[in-house]
C-alpha cells in the first residue's frame, strides 16, 4: 500500500504539491516512485520558465521507464532541487521529503482542483 502524507495537495498524475506562502513545491508520490522503480535521473524546466497548468515541468527517468512531471498549477519555475542531480535515488527513499521543482503560484484557485490526502488515497485504492 502506497504511503500518502497528510497536509499536501495531490494530482491524478501522482504528484504532490506543498503550498508555502506564494510558492509551491512539486514532487512525486510514493505510488509514483514505486511504479517507476529505481529512479536514475531527474530534471526540471529551466528556472524562469512560465508554465500553465498541465505543462511539462520536468522529467523523471528510471532504469525501465520515463515519466514527465506535469505542473498541476500555473506558475514560473523558481528553482530545481539540486540535490536530485547527484542523488536521484532520494526520490525512491523519501518521496515526500524531496521536492523537484519550486514554482510561483499564479492562480491560487487552481489548488481547489487538486485532491487532499484522503481523496488521493481513495483514488489510488480505485486503481
Amino acid at each position: 500500500m502506497a504511503d500518502v502524507k497528510a497536509g499536501l495537495y495531490y494530482s491524478s498524475e501522482h504528484e504532490w504539491l506543498r503550498a508555502d506562502d506564494d510558492a509551491v513545491y512539486l514532487g512525486i508520490t510514493d505510488f509514483a516512485q514505486s511504479s517507476l522503480g529505481d529512479i536514475v535521473f531527474v530534471d526540471g524546466e529551466p528556472v524562469g520558465s512560465q508554465l500553465s497548468a498541465g505543462d511539462v515541468a520536468g522529467v523523471i527517468e528510471s532504469v525501465k521507464a520515463a515519466s514527465d512531471l506535469y505542473a498541476p498549477v500555473s506558475g514560473v519555475v523558481l528553482a530545481i532541487n539540486g540535490r536530485l542531480a547527484e542523488t536521484p535515488e532520494l526520490l525512491n527513499e523519501e518521496p515526500y521529503a524531496c521536492w523537484i521543482v519550486k514554482l510561483t503560484l499564479s492562480n491560487p484557485a487552481e489548488l481547489d482542483g487538486l485532491m487532499d490526502a484522503k481523496a488521493y488515497a481513495a483514488f489510488c485504492e480505485g486503481l
Binding site: 536514475v40 535521473f41 528510471s62 532504469v63 525501465k64 520515463a66 514527465d68
Partner: peptide
C-alpha cells in the same frame, strides 16, 4: 544504459 532516451521506453518522446 541511459535507455530512458530511447524509443522502446520513451516512444513518441
Amino acid at each position: 544504459t541511459l535507455q530512458a532516451r530511447e524509443q522502446h521506453i520513451r516512444r513518441d518522446k
